[in-house]
Structure formats: C-alpha cells, structure tokens
Design a protein around this nucleic acid. Structure first.
Ligand SMILES: [Zn+2]
Ligand SMILES: [Zn+2]
Ligand SMILES: [Zn+2]
Ligand SMILES: [Zn+2]
Lengths: 137, 137
DNA sequence: ATGAACCCTGTAGCAACTACAGGGTCAAGT
DNA sequence: ACTTGACCCTGTAGTTGCTACAGGGTTCAT
C-alpha cells in the first residue's frame, strides 16, 4: 500500500502513532513527504523499515542497536560479523538479566515462605528486610 | 554511630549520596536535623531505615511498595496480611519477568544460531528481522 | 455546516535514579 | 593566615523508550 497516513502504518505494524513520530524525532524513521494538508505519507519502504524496527525491539535490541543494525543492513557486501556481534551481545544481556532475576526469585521466595500469618510485629518478611541479610544465601 | 554526615551513611549502606537525597525528596527518607554548616546529620534510626529500603529495593520491591512496607511496619499489632500480599505480588512480578525473558531468550538464540558468517546480504539474522516472524516459534 | 475521526507540533510525565553546575564548609598542611 | 582538597548544599537536566496531553488543523460524510 502506498501513500499511507501515519494511522494506517501504525495499524499495519501494531505500533502506536506517537511511537512512529518519536522514531522520526530520534532519526530512526525518516522524515517523509507530506500531503497538502501536512500529513505524513508513507510507502512500503517505510513500512518495511518499521517492521524491522518492531521485530528487533521485540527481541530486546536497544534503540542504538537497532540503529546500528539498520545501517549495517545497507552495506550489503560487507562481512556480517558486526551484525552477529550485536545480536550475541543482546542475547548475552538477556541471559544476564534472566540469571539476575532468578537469583532474586530465590531470595524473595525464601523470604515470602517465612511468613506465618500473624501480627506485623512478628512478621518474618519485615524481619528479613529489617536487618542485614545473614538469613539468606 | 550518631551524628553521621550523608557520606558516612552512604558508605555504611552502600548507597549513593545522591540517592539518599533523592529518597528524602520523595519522602522515603525523613528530613533530618542539620549541623551549623547546614549538613544533614543522621542517627541510627535513619541508618536502619535506609538499610531496610536498600534490602527491599535489592529484592525488587518498587518505591511505592517500599513506602507501603515501611508504613505497615509501624502498625505493630496489625495483621501482616498486607505485608505478605505486597511481597507475593513482587514475587509474582519477578516470575512474570523471568518467563518473558526466557521466551525472548529462546527466540533470540534461534535467530543468532542461524548465522553462517558471510556477507551482510546473506545474513540470516537480518533476514529474520527483515520479514514477519514465520520462521520462529 | 457540523461532527467525528483523523492529523499536526510541542511539551510534560513515567521509574529510579545519575550527573552536573555553581556554589558553601571544614580540617589539615605550610 | 592561607590554601588545598575532601566533603557538603541546592537545583536542574539527563537517562530509556516511550506515553499522554494541550491546543490546535484537515478531511470527509451526512
Ligand atoms: Zn507476615
Ligand atoms: Zn543474596
Ligand atoms: Zn550473519
Ligand atoms: Zn514468538
């Protein structure tokens, strides 16, 4: 579809209109031509680009990583090592976050398990928070 | 230790000085007495309170949850059900985040595995990002 | 011509800090 | 006495990635 207004592009990529304008402001999406009424007019290039951005964001890539991926994608006969590096960095970061949250989950569920429904004065959860963590690990 | 300056309190709780001032600004830490030279002067009450805050934050509680826990902790002969509810909510939220990240990790590592180091034009990672996700799941 | 649905810009807000800028205070060393 | 350096103060702006207005303009159907 050609000559899409921003709302159509938004629907077709499941993106909020304001997000598209935001991407334009930070230079992730291009400034496109306007209609007479000053409406942005998008074509299939932009739709593809936004689709790429959305999928990359959904996979956890940061804005700057997406920016880098997009510009690498244009240098077609270059080696893809940098692309792979970015993707692997993201994967590592995701794995790091999982590990950190799993640690957290362990400690937190240990704390939660302590509670024998009673008065606040005796609550083990508050006791656990109230003093240095010699009870944990 | 009594009559601590903010830097000492910061060191003893492994908190940044600016974070303590920030906690004061948002009402999580109290406004304490000042010295002649207008320096904040902390006692052991505040040190304990900040310790509690730090541990709760480390366990993933949000600022508003910490605020609620602190005020519940003062009503000593109340039932601790609300405390437990907050803690369990936090645990659930942590578990939700872990699950989401594990999903992400699956999809992302599937993408990363595709790459056979070559030219950008053939990079499977970019191909995966460049089109709707019919390759995944 | 009036209304609904859409579009525009620009600014402020979210969480939870972090990083200055541009000062003041205090103790130690010379 | 004076200077250096470490510390402290307030206030504001930046971070990430959007989201939510406020206060307008455009388009199109009825
Ligand atoms: Zn309890
Ligand atoms: Zn631990
Ligand atoms: Zn590749
Ligand atoms: Zn999927």
């Amino acid at each position: 579809m050609i000559g899409m207004k921003i709302g159509e592009l938004a629907r077709s990529t499941r993106t909020a209109v304001e997000t598209i304008r935001y991407y334009e402001k930070i230079g992730l999406m291009p400034q496109v031509a306007r209609t007479e009424g000053n409406y942005r007019s998008y074509g299939s290039n932009e739709a593809e680009r936004l689709g790429f951005i959305r999928r990359a964001r959904d996979l956890g890539f940061g804005i700057d990583q997406v920016r880098a991926l997009l510009s690498l994608a244009d240098e077609r006969d270059r080696d893809c090592g940098e692309v792979d590096f970015i993707a692997k960095s993201n994967l590592l970061e995701v794995e790091r976050k999982i590990a950190a949250l799993q640690n957290l989950q362990q400690e937190l569920s240990a704390v939660v398990r302590q509670c024998r429904a009673g008065k606040v004065a005796d609550c083990r959860i508050l006791k656990a928070l109230g003093r240095p963590a010699d009870w944990a690990d």
